[in-house]
């Protein structure tokens, strides 16, 4: 348990650094799609809800978990969908000139 905790903290710290480095290089042009994309990725929380619902430990957990799956899945589907729609619109003037 203790080791797991330390491992997790290391992972968290490293992921934050990677996040800062990667996001810093995102063009300000794309800040809106960036936000909808990170939103979709963040909805990976759905996997926690899936396990909770699947284990059926209590009715309470199953009910809350199912609502959680609905909420997160709508972010996954909606988030990727709208990010894709946005990015399709970004065109350069160079190719058609």
């Amino acid at each position: 348990m203790g080791d797991n905790l330390i491992d997790s903290l290391f992972i968290f710290m490293l992921a934050c650094f990677i996040g800062f480095e990667v996001i810093r290089h995102v063009s300000p042009l794309l800040h809106t799609p960036l936000m909808s994309l990170t939103n979709a990725l963040d909805a990976i929380a759905v996997i926690g809800a899936i396990v909770m619902v699947g284990e059926r430990k209590s009715t309470f957990a199953t009910v809350l978990g199912t609502i959680a799956i609905v909420a997160a899945t709508s972010n996954v589907v909606g988030g990727f969908f709208i990010t894709d729609r946005m990015l399709k619109m970004f065109k350069s003037s160079r190719p058609n000139k």
């Binding site: 968290f12 992921a15 996040g19 960036l34 990170t38 963040d42 929380a45």
Partner: peptide, 11 residues
């Protein structure tokens, strides 16, 4: 989940 959350949080 930790990694995805950290990425989204830092973003």
């Amino acid at each position: 989940l930790i990694i995805a959350g950290a990425l989204d949080g830092s973003s």
